[in-house]
Structures are given as structure tokens and as C-alpha cells.
Simulated scan of single mutants.
Amino acid sequence: MKLHRIKLVFLCLFICSGVYAQSTSATLIKKVDGFSHPESVVFNDDKNEYYISNMADEIAGDGFISRVSAEGEIIELKWIDGLKDPKGLLVKDGKVYVTNNTEVIEISIENSEITKRIEVEGAKSLNDITADAAGNIFISDSGKSAIYLIPNDTPNMLMVPENEDGDIIEYLNTTRLEYVNGLYAHKDYLYAAAWGENTNGNFLKIDMDTREIEKVSKKGIGNLDGVQPVGDDAFYISDWATGTIYLIEKDGELKEVLTSEKSSGDILFDAEKNQLVLPMNFQNSVWWYQLQ
């Protein structure tokens, strides 16, 4: 028991110290095929399993969500099906939230069924989804260069209009978001991986209260897709166009970590295993990399 506690303390110190921010090389350790244009990966700690969104082909209703074990084995390929271009995933309070073209879907994990569909009026192509510490949910719209908000029921400090019906609010709508793709809420900011108008999307920081937008990157990077935090000081971001994964510091310093292939989407960083999980859209596969 004493040795076990020492190991736990060491692991906590290792993670909290920002050691992972030094991981700028990686080795491909696993490929799992059989998906259909996978876009996003999240992990459910309570169930010890991954959920993977599959955009499938351009046919309404052929999209689906897969369940995959912690070891990377497909448990249920079409766990939830009948979707249209599902992309971003969020695990929150026993539910999975999915951006599904122009609507947000709520799935009960326990019952394996869709419990709510929220149509987003005016949306063009909903993409990533994230929640802040207060329970507010933010959703990117890459087609519209906008961000939507589902406010938490409890009072919070965000400056938003009255929303007694619990509807989705258009939080930001500006080309300064550079056709925002990936989103991650961290403390008082939203961090955004921008697709850009061509291949010059920046990594952005948005003050949640004032909605002020600031460029973190020193110049355009690429068609940015996924964003994952590395402690408090850095992020892993993916460039869909080249398959390159970068480590970017909060001061904008950029380091290349690995290059996979074109179409690496909304990545997942597993801090405990020090691994990156990449949904590979064109390859119909999910790739695991061990960071070093």
C-alpha cells in the first residue's frame, strides 16, 4: 500500500510538473482499421472506453458513433447510428454530446440511446464541442466562422443574453475566428484551432467574458483541426492538411511533434499514458502514437 501511494504521488508530480510539454517526438504503436471517415476521439474514464465519431459518406443517416476499448479493440462499431456527418464529441455528466451537421445530439451512455436533439438555427457546419468548468458548452461552426453557446442552468459570470428556454445562443460570429475548427475551454479562455481561409489558420485565444480574440501563433500554421491541452502551458494541435501534430506554447512557440498523413482530425491526448490518438479520416483508421 505504501509503495502504491508513492507511485501515485510520483505520477501526479510527473503530470502536474509539465513534463509532457517536453514530448516533441512520437512513435506509431497501433493502427485500428474498419471505421468510416472518423473525425473525433474522446475517452470516457468512468467506462474506460473511447467514443469515435464516423462521418461516413455523403448520405444523410449513414454517420455513427463507435465504442472502442481502452486497448483499441472495437466493441461496437455502430453504437449510435442514423447520424449525418457527426464530428465533435464531449463526455459530460453521463452523456455524450455530438455535433451532427446543424444540430447537437445528446446521448445517454447508460441507455445507449439519443435523448435529445437540438437544432441550431442558422448553423452551417457544426464542428467541435467543449465545456468550461461552470458547465457552459461551446460549439464551433466552421462553415460560418462562429461559436455557439449552451449556457449552464446555474448562474455564471459569462456575459450572455437572458436565455430562459435553454436555447443555443450565437456567442461569436466573425471572420476573425478564421473558420474555427477545434475548441478547448481552459480557465477563462477558449482556445481555438482555426481552419483558415486557405491553409493559414492560426491558433487563437478567446476571452470567455469579453469575447476578445487574440492570435497565439506568430503566423498562420495550416488547416488546424484538433486541440488538446498539455498541462497549463501548452497544447497539441493537428494540421489536417499535412497530418502534422504540433506542440504550441502559450507564447506562440511552435514545435513539430510528428507527421502522420493528410486528414488527421480531432485528436486526443491521453496524459496518463502519454499517448496521442489520431482519427485518420481518409484512411478510415485510428492511429495511436507513444510520445517520447
Rank of each mutant, 00 (worst) to 15 (best):
L83V: 08
K262C: 02
G226D: 08
L183S: 05
L3V: 07
D209V: 14
D207I: 07
R211A: 09
I109N: 09
F14S: 03
P86R: 06
G196E: 04
N223H: 12
T99K: 03
L126W: 10
A194K: 09
P161K: 05
L258V: 13
E39S: 10
W240Y: 11
H4P: 00
L149F: 06
I80T: 11
I59T: 13
E197L: 13
D46C: 00
E71F: 12
E253S: 05
F14H: 08
I118T: 05
F282E: 13
F203C: 03
R5C: 02
I6N: 01
A26V: 06
N156E: 08
L89V: 03
N181Y: 08
D45A: 10
W288S: 13
I15W: 03
S263Y: 04
V9M: 11
Y51N: 05
T175S: 15
D85A: 14
S66V: 03
Q22W: 06
W288L: 11
I107R: 00
S112R: 09
T102P: 05
N127I: 07
M55Q: 13
D207K: 02
H186W: 04
D266M: 11
N111L: 15
K205I: 10
K30C: 11
S25I: 14
R117T: 15
A60D: 13
V277I: 15
K250Y: 12
L13H: 07
E212M: 10
L268F: 15
Y148H: 09
D81N: 12
S17F: 09
K92R: 04
F235S: 07
E197F: 14
L8I: 08
T154G: 00
E178G: 09
D188K: 13
P155K: 06
K144D: 14
N100M: 06
E119Y: 10
E73N: 13
P161M: 03
R67W: 02
T99V: 01
N48V: 06
W195I: 08
K30I: 09
W288E: 13
Q275L: 10
I147L: 02
